[in-house]
Nucleic acid binder design. Structure first.
Length: 217
DNA sequence: GACCAGGCACATC
DNA sequence: GATGTGCATGGT
């Protein structure tokens, strides 16, 4: 087996043994996961948690609530998540699509084929590849491997990909090296975020990183 | 007070 | 296709 494939598989074994299954996504319903996926764009999750609590208190965590609430009210509720005017618009755009294409039913949407869903999600203003794949994987349970800034960093640090690899490059890398398994994709992404937060930052703290033994091999 | 955080759209070359 | 910029809050 090639070095890169061996390392990508070994990295998961190490992280899984270190952390156990991380049980992502931290959201109660598919709609809440979709909302979280939009709110966490380039934003610390702690800020998103505050926004979600505030939305719940204001009864905005439902299709009806999101559809009917005035823009300024929604903006106030999600203020803590940053870019709140943009994100309020993004949430409204998603609900607009959901109403138009699936009669406002998340459950009906979840039944559509994955390839069609990805195209549709990407056509919605404010939803790019990472958000689309997060929704496919964590809200709808399709095997979409999620790539984020941490994925790029970890892959570059370990020599699995070039530093300027595109989103599609990185996604192809992992999906070609791993079994196509929803539960594996779910946890692998969560584990990469864990490594990113604790070790593989812009200024990496490789000392004590469970993946340190892989470096230089 | 800089720097960073589970991106994306848009303008410009 | 690659590169630059605006969007905004809250923690370190």
């Amino acid at each position: 087996m090639p070095r890169t494939q061996r390392q990508i598989q070994e990295a998961y074994r190490i992280l899984r043994a270190h952390n156990g299954h991380l049980r992502w996504w931290p959201g109660r319903t598919p709609l809440e996961i979709i909302v979280g996926a939009i709110l966490t764009q380039n934003t610390a999750w702690t800020n998103v948690e505050t926004a979600i609590r505030s939305m719940r208190a204001a009864h905005l965590l439902s299709v009806k609530g999101l559809r009917e609430t005035p823009m300024d009210h929604l903006e106030r509720a999600i203020r803590s998540s940053g870019y709140f005017r943009q994100k309020a618009k993004k949430l409204k755009c998603f609900i607009g699509f959901l109403d138009e294409a699936y009669g406002g039913s998340v459950k009906r949407m979840a039944g559509a084929p994955a390839a069609r869903l990805r195209e549709e999600l990407l056509s919605i203003w404010g939803i790019g590849p990472e958000t689309a794949d997060s929704i496919l994987l964590y809200a709808f349970g399709y095997p979409a491997f999620v790539v984020d800034a941490y994925t790029a960093r970890v892959a570059a640090r370990h020599g699995w990909a070039s530093e300027k690899a595109s989103y599609a490059d990185l996604q192809n890398l992992f999906t070609s090296m791993l079994p196509h398994d929803v539960d594996l994709y779910n946890d692998y992404h969560a584990q990469i975020v864990w490594v990113g937060k604790h070790h593989c930052r812009a200024r990496p703290r490789c000392d004590g990183c469970p993946l340190e033994p892989l470096l230089g091999r």
